[in-house]
Design a protein around this nucleic acid. Structure first.
Lengths: 340, 340
DNA sequence: CTTAGGACTGGAAGCGTTTACAATTTGCCG
DNA sequence: CGGCAAATTGTAAACGCTTCCAGTCCTAAG
């Protein structure tokens, strides 16, 4: 294995100079820099970040903790973060919590403590006190995406406002009989997110003087499958059917559309459906939604973190609100029968 | 930061003994082992794998290279691998190639060379000669999932046989007018996979004496959206409509179902559809498919790799065929009109 | 009662970088 | 032309572990 020593020898420089040349830190004459680079290239040499990290403390590696890798939002964040990190020459260590509590525990009590990462991005995790402590015990910058994370910077969307906006879109079309598909307590590793969106919905309904019917609020696990089942129940059992459904996520909206089709309901003639996210399938399904640019959130988290790392300043806990955009497609329309 | 030294001091042992105790290698008396463990626990000490790796060469980290993080198959592999690695105390570094050629290049020419990983899993990548060389230049065990990878071990399914099996399922139901949605050359970072599945399809058709109509073979990019568009075209333009569609992946099958619905076609009465994968949405969509246990493939790759790593033996290039299973749901049925 | 052979342990030499620190050179000012 | 600061370079000491080597002790065979 060629090391920096070989490069130094070949370039006729000291190891120290080569190190400086390659890392771009400190003063190096252009000549030396070029010679070092050339020698490295000829030898196919690449710095070992393991060794670098021992000596410098910088690992060139960011940890990304996600509850799952299947749900659209998480994949999108991973994609955004991954690209931004690649760009910056940083590695991405993925900690997929999953549903196994032991795995979850070991991530926080072992994996993250190994001084292996320069920073951590935690996505949509409802963390316990001790988990938060363990995070902070790393003494590394942390960014939370998708909800509050005590003591850390966060990137988030204004869930309440968005839910209101979505609900108002439906109300504006003339709907008053609106159902809501919210998150599922049991399954939820998420923040208060489902609750917040739900209150936004209720508030908008109240503001419009529309009654919120408890039987029209059903919960699911944020997956297409889960919402499909929930929506079937909603559409089957209700003595009266809503004319519109606002789902707390696009995946749940899609599940709802699938369920509606099973009942022979046409979208949007018989039922308007909308979600929140900006899911890739939105186009195909003609789904009206509020796009939250998850990829962008991942990239922004990386930029924030990298900024703090390279400047070597502690990251000031700050809340950044990410912009969202109402995207109207064909799944929402004026209700056919406007009777109440 | 507490180091192994502090633990040694606290346990009244030498650094060497603590190291042996914590890593489980070499001879340590039960008493010492216990004392070391206790001291480490009290101090909340966790070994730094960076340092370990410098000294021992083992990084406790596996690289996973994927073309994308959105397609179902890749997420599933990531999930399987991630869980297996977590279990074993290994970190997972994710290299998401994406569609940016520069990113792709830097993954192979920089990232993987940093002596950062003990092993690599490459998923469904059609690698160039030089990329393969760079992989091997790492001198680390490699497992390829989803297709051949010269010089490395692979885990794969028998694509040709599966395609035949799928086609035969449709033929067996009485279909003869079968269309096929295959992969898209341009978009394809995959192995010959689409081609292989397509030949399997054609072979089964030929064996059954059914003509393969070129206009009934359309290609898409393996996504729901892509297949949706392709299927719309297929179903709209053909002078005569097929009675069944065999898609090369579940996502493409789902796209086909969505397109069919747009045309008012009932599944399976008017059109039978099947795919390959075992996608989570299979249930909701009632999709007949051939389940290929992607998660299991990810986990198996990890086990294979970890076996080689811990035994410190070179990984013998071997092809492991992963089992698959025909899952019949409601998207396939006897054709309504059995005329030819 | 010897003695060979394990089991256990600690000392110390790295592993491949970074980074003070110190030394040398260079550039620019008055 | 003297002098000071900045630029450039090299030497060597870490960084936090693992592991080779030797030494000590204990056990069981001869």
């Amino acid at each position: 294995m060629t090391g920096i020593k070989d490069v130094a020898e070949r370039a006729g420089l000291s190891v120290a100079t080569v190190s400086r040349a390659l890392s771009g830190k400190g003063h190096v004459s252009p000549t030396s820099r070029e010679r070092a680079r050339a020698a490295a290239a000829e030898l196919g040499f690449v710095l070992s970040y393991h060794a670098s990290s021992l000596a410098s403390g910088r690992t060139h590696n960011v940890g990304l903790v996600v509850p799952s890798v299947h749900r659209w939002f998480f994949s999108a964040v991973i994609e955004g973060a991954s690209a931004a990190l690649l760009e910056a020459g940083y590695d991405l260590t993925l900690y997929n919590i999953g549903e196994n509590p032991e795995h979850r525990h070991s991530v926080f009590s072992d994996f993250l403590l190994r001084k292996r990462v320069d920073a951590v991005i935690a996505v949509s995790l409802e963390l316990s006190e001790s988990e938060i402590q363990q995070l902070h015990a790393m003494h590394r910058p942390i960014v939370g995406i998708g909800g509050p994370l005590p003591g850390a910077s966060t990137i988030r969307i204004d869930d309440a406002a968005i839910a209101r906006k979505a609900t108002n879109h439906l109300l504006g079309l003339g709907h008053s009989k609106i159902a809501h598909i919210t998150g599922n307590e049991a399954y939820d590793q998420d923040f208060q997110l489902p609750g917040t969106r739900r209150s936004g919905f209720e508030q908008a309904m109240n503001d419009a003087g529309c009654p919120v019917r408890p039987e029209w609020i059903v919960s699911a696990d944020f997956t297409i499958e889960g919402a499909y089942a929930a929506a079937r129940q909603l559409l089957a059992s209700a003595p009266e059917r809503p004319t519109a459904v606002f789902a707390a996520s696009d995946e749940m909206a899609i599940g709802t559309i699938l369920a509606a089709r099973d009942f022979g309901l046409r979208i949007p003639e018989d039922l308007s459906v909308m979600g929140i996210d900006g899911h890739d399938l939105g186009n195909v399904m003609g789904l009206t939604t509020i796009d939250q640019d998850a990829k962008g959130q991942g990239a922004l988290a990386v930029r924030t973190l990298l900024g703090a790392i390279t400047k070597d300043v502690a990251l000031e806990p700050a809340d950044t609100e990410h912009p969202t955009k109402l995207v109207v497609r064909t799944s929402t329309a004026v209700p056919k029968v406007s009777a109440s």
